[in-house]
Nucleic acid binder design. Structure first.
Length: 306
DNA sequence: GGACCGTGCTCATACGTAGG
DNA sequence: CCTACGTATGAGCACGGTCC
């Protein structure tokens, strides 16, 4: 008996058909080859399996006991192989039990989760979502090893490697946030007014200057950062109770202003808009579960503007 | 890139058997 | 005995892989 390296597995398909048809010509037709070719195949099967397999009798081609004993196992093997090569079943969120790990900034988390979480809880009750805070270093290893399914954040900060898939989700820009009733902001904010105010800087990395300071430095100006904090939430609570102001992404500022006594005003400086992107590994591109989650995130982002 | 080799196909035909 | 049907066999060809 030959080993698998030399055994032509296509012979098993022919065997299956020959045993179903018990007729070389009809089996050949089913395999879209000539009768002669199928006869050659049968000859090879006989050599490989060291058994006549089908014997010509007055009743037609009659299987040997060895052939009969192989019918069920060969059919089972072929069915299994067919299952292996068939396209994967579409993702079924309603019956899926798994967890997704997303690396994201607190900005994305605060903005997206209120839209995303209720929808996922309804559509996919067995799916768990774990947001993990991104460090300043791009979590490439975690993404490549499958520990993280998606990365969400500002494109300009992440600067994703070219071989990864990167999709723009929405853009945003900075506004000035102050407490409701703030006298200067109420009156309309000039650059001079803005610079004179005490500022809160939100810095996850601990840096003492931000995008605003860079812009001011380019224009020969400077502001006073009176307080540096690491979270948007604590910054918002402080701004709501003091005359300090902060530069804040407009979308989250609007969100916080719904529950805190905060108002938004245009910044008296010209900062660029920035894109929030979704990044995934090419290995996950065709994965039905990952495709589904990306579609859910897209839908949640589309709902942000409504 | 060309020579060589193995594999699997088709074509033509031989062979075996059953039925008229 | 002839014919029809189904299977087996050998020659030739195309194709892909390996080696130099």
């Amino acid at each position: 008996m030959a080993d698998l390296r030399t055994f032509d597995l296509n012979l098993l398909i022919a065997f299956d058909l020959l045993m179903k048809e018990r007729n070389v010509s009809r089996a050949a037709e089913k395999m879209f080859i000539s009768q002669s070719a199928m006869s050659h195949v049968l000859q090879r099967l006989r050599q490989q399996l060291e058994d006549p397999l089908l014997v010509k009798t007055p009743a037609g081609m009659t299987p040997t006991p060895r052939a009969l004993s192989l019918v069920a196992p060969v059919a089972a093997v072929l069915k299994e192989v067919e299952g292996l090569i068939r396209a994967p079943a579409p993702f079924d969120p309603a019956n899926c039990r798994r967890a997704f790990n997303l690396a994201a900034t607190d900005y994305v988390e605060a903005l997206l989760l209120p839209k995303l979480a209720p929808h996922i809880a309804r559509q996919a009750p067995g799916v768990d979502i774990h947001f993990k805070r991104t460090s300043s270093r791009f979590p490439l290893n975690a993404l490549e090893q499958g520990e993280i399914d998606l990365i969400l954040g500002f494109e300009v900060m992440l600067n994703p490697p070219k071989h990864l898939h990167c999709e723009r989700l929405f853009d945003d820009y900075m506004v000035c946030v102050a407490r409701i009733g703030h006298p200067l902001v109420n009156a309309g904010l000039t650059l001079e007014d803005y610079i004179d105010l005490p500022h809160i800087l939100v810095s996850r990395t601990g840096a003492s200057t931000g995008q605003v300071d860079s812009w001011l430095a380019e224009h020969g100006r400077e502001r006073r950062v009176a307080l540096t904090v690491s979270h948007f939430l604590s910054a918002s609570l402080i701004v709501a109770q003091t005359d300090m102001v902060m530069a804040f992404p407009k979308r989250t500022a609007e969100q916080f202003a719904q529950t805190l006594p905060l108002q938004l005003a245009p910044l008296p400086l010209d900062l660029p808009h920035y894109d929030t992107v979704m990044i995934w590994h090419p290995l996950q591109d065709q994965d039905p579960a990952n495709c589904w989650l990306r579609a859910e995130i897209r839908a949640a982002c589309a709902a942000l503007d409504h």
